[in-house]
Simulated scan of single mutants.
Amino acid sequence: MTVLDLPAAMELSIEQQWPHRNEDWELFLKLGEGLVAERDGKLIGTTMAWCFGEDMATIGMVIVSPAAQGQGIGRKLMEEMIRRLGNRTIVLNATEEGLPLYQKLGFVETGRVYQHQGLVKDVPLAELSPGDRIRPKGKADTSLASFYGAASGMDRRALFDTLAQESRTVVYTHDNVPAGFAMLRRFGRGWSIAPVVAPDSTSAKALILHWLAVKQRRFCRIDVTAEGDLSGWLDSLGLPCVGSVRTMARGPAPVSGPEAKVFALAAQALG
């Protein structure tokens, strides 16, 4: 995949009713690599991958044109990308349509992700304990990338640095010590609150509420993990769940550290 393929790739994602803009595809390609399938000079399939350190990777943006489905194209793209990734554990988020293929390729379900989006009209105040604070990211916040890696069980330093250039970031602190963060960036139809990393659900909610208040009555999207148990809470705020995917791993699944976990993904494709 090259940048010249991105307009046609975006057309494939539009066929799937996915919201990705050309800028979103450009960001994904900047962060990783992709493969395309062509027939008679026309792009009919894609897959992308992102490596996180020497032992972890994610795969996403697996798309085959409806007119070319059922011909093994998706499997060939996946098999070639898996070969390129070598012995890394591979994580992906599977739609129901892609689930049978991924199971045949050795992926095992490890969790679920719930996609919430819409416009929140009334944003409640966040509940913060004494000593807690939400503030903008500063130059001294050099530990956040490593913090993200420990929470996700992957080396996410390069991803954090790239997303930070595309996003606004706020930090959750306890007694002035950074303990979590949340980013906000343009994505799809509006704004994506992603990722959200926090020590517990209360601090994760405070981070999310901060950005929802900033973008009140604007279209926002957030993809939360089932483990974080925020889906019902987002429903109650007026940000409905519009779909879900199954998180799957091929190889030993990543393990988050004890200090924090990922409550909302950077993107379904990136994990």
Rank of each mutant, 00 (worst) to 15 (best):
T2S: 05
D5Q: 04
D5V: 09
P7I: 12
A8R: 05
A8N: 06
A8E: 09
Q17G: 00
Q17Y: 10
R21K: 13
E23G: 02
K30H: 07
L31W: 01
G32I: 10
L35T: 10
V36P: 01
V36Y: 09
A37W: 04
A37R: 02
A37D: 06
I44D: 04
F52Y: 15
P66K: 10
A67L: 15
Q71C: 10
G72T: 07
I73K: 00
E80I: 08
E80A: 04
M81T: 10
I82K: 10
R83H: 14
L85T: 11
I90M: 13
A94P: 00
E96D: 12
Y102G: 03
L105Q: 13
G106V: 08
G111H: 02
Y114F: 15
H116V: 03
V120F: 09
D122F: 14
V123Q: 04
P124G: 07
R135E: 14
K139Y: 06
K139I: 13
T142A: 03
T142H: 05
S143W: 02
S146P: 04
Y148M: 05
A150F: 14
M154R: 14
D155C: 04
R156T: 06
L159R: 02
D161G: 01
L163I: 15
Q165D: 05
E166D: 14
S167K: 07
S167H: 06
R168I: 09
Y172I: 13
A182W: 09
I193G: 01
A194W: 14
P195A: 11
P195S: 05
P199E: 07
A206H: 02
W211R: 02
L212V: 01
A213K: 13
Q216K: 13
C220F: 11
A226H: 11
A226T: 02
G228Y: 12
G228T: 07
D235Q: 15
C241Q: 14
S244K: 08
M248Y: 06
M248K: 01
A249F: 11
G251V: 14
A253N: 07
E259N: 14
A264K: 08
A264F: 13
A264D: 13
L265S: 00
Q268S: 01
